[in-house]
């Protein structure tokens, strides 16, 4: 754990220096950090707990809408609305999971699409709540300690803090009782029960935590975009992107989802001129490569090789 926390600390230090070194590449860095945070949050449920959700855009949307509506209609500062969004996302996750956790494997994934689509329809149609299909605009934001939250630098630091907090959460959980419960339920629910673990309660906790963390990133995303439309925030494609980022990077690993975000956002940027809006092509190709040749994902495969090498060494000595 210490090893991973030190690694995170070093990355954080590099991140803090980043805006001074690359002041013109902040938007893409924000994108990497948000996706790293979302994919890592997703992975708590999808990787560590084995419940593949294709509906996480709902929580991104939830966070963004809380921040935007809170600010534009009630004058509430984003930090309050993000906390509220996290609480609300956890509650939503609880009921969502309560409804769908009797389904297993691909059926659970299908049900998450259905729930997310219903939520998207609500966001589009309930004008009084969300401003409907036209969206909500964030015109003003408070300036805590004189910081302009509309500046890309401030937004970069918010995204950096978000990604760091999520990864730190996973590092701590991976060593703790909860982390073992998550993985046990993923591997074999009966065997987990034999170890005294309540599988449904474990999955619900994972879903709630995953949803709450994702929504906080959603709130930051709302500030970054400043203009929020339901088509963007609740899109099935965003859910798919989040899930694939984690799976390509390596499900159930600490650094996999973040590595996935770096690779996928980076590749998207590299091929931006070639593929233009068709940049999801990269996700399609990479997920096929992963499913066919590296089922554990990039970091998962590296970690497995590392463990085998270590074990081979110990066996020799």
């Amino acid at each position: 754990m210490t090893k991973h926390l030190i690694g995170l600390g070093l990355l954080l230090a590099a991140g803090i220096a980043y805006p001074a070194i690359f002041p013109n590449n902040l938007t893409i860095a924000i994108s990497v950090l948000l996706f790293a945070g979302w994919a890592t949050s997703w992975d708590l449920l999808g990787g560590w707990n084995g419940q593949v959700s294709l509906g996480h855009a709902s929580f991104v949307g939830l966070g963004a809408y809380f921040v935007a509506i809170g600010q534009s209609q009630f004058g509430l500062a984003p930090w309050w609305t993000m906390a509220m969004a996290a609480a609300f996302a956890a509650i939503l996750g609880y009921f969502w999971g309560w409804l769908t956790f009797s389904l297993r494997g691909p059926y659970f994934s299908l049900s998450t699409i259905a729930v997310a689509e219903i939520l998207r329809l609500v966001a589009i149609n309930e004008d009084w709540l969300t401003g409907g299909a036209t969206g909500v605009f964030i015109a003003t934001l408070p300036e805590p300690f004189g910081i302009d939250l509309f500046s890309r630098t401030a937004q970069f630091y918010m995204a950096l803090a978000f990604a760091a907090v999520v990864i730190a959460t996973v590092i701590v959980i991976s060593r703790a009782r909860f982390g073992f419960q998550l993985r046990a339920v993923r591997e074999d629910e009966d065997s987990a029960m034999a170890a005294g673990i309540d599988p449904t309660a474990t999955k619900l906790k994972a879903f709630m935590l995953s949803a709450a963390l994702t929504s906080i990133g959603g709130g930051i995303y709302g500030i970054v975009l400043a203009f929020i439309e339901p088509h963007v925030m609740f899109a099935l494609l965003l859910s798919v992107q989040i899930a694939l980022t984690a799976i390509i990077g390596g499900r159930g690993t600490i650094w996999g989802p973040a590595a996935g975000a770096l690779v996928l956002v980076g590749a998207g940027e590299m091929f931006r001129t070639t593929f233009a809006e068709a940049n999801m092509l990269i996700y399609g190709i990479l997920i096929l490569v992963v499913v066919l040749f590296v089922p554990r994902g990039i970091v998962g495969e590296l970690a497995r090789r590392h463990i085998r090498r270590l074990y081979a060494k110990r066996a020799q000595s």
């Binding site: 691909p106 994934s109 593929f275 092509l281 096929l288």
Partner: peptide, 23 residues
């Protein structure tokens, strides 16, 4: 492979077809 693998593979195919048509 585990049932999710086929789901993910067809998801990949879906993204490739859609975006290839877009291109």
């Amino acid at each position: 492979a585990p049932p999710e693998s086929a789901l993910l593979a067809t998801l990949g195919i879906s993204l490739i077809i859609g975006n290839a048509i877009l291109l």
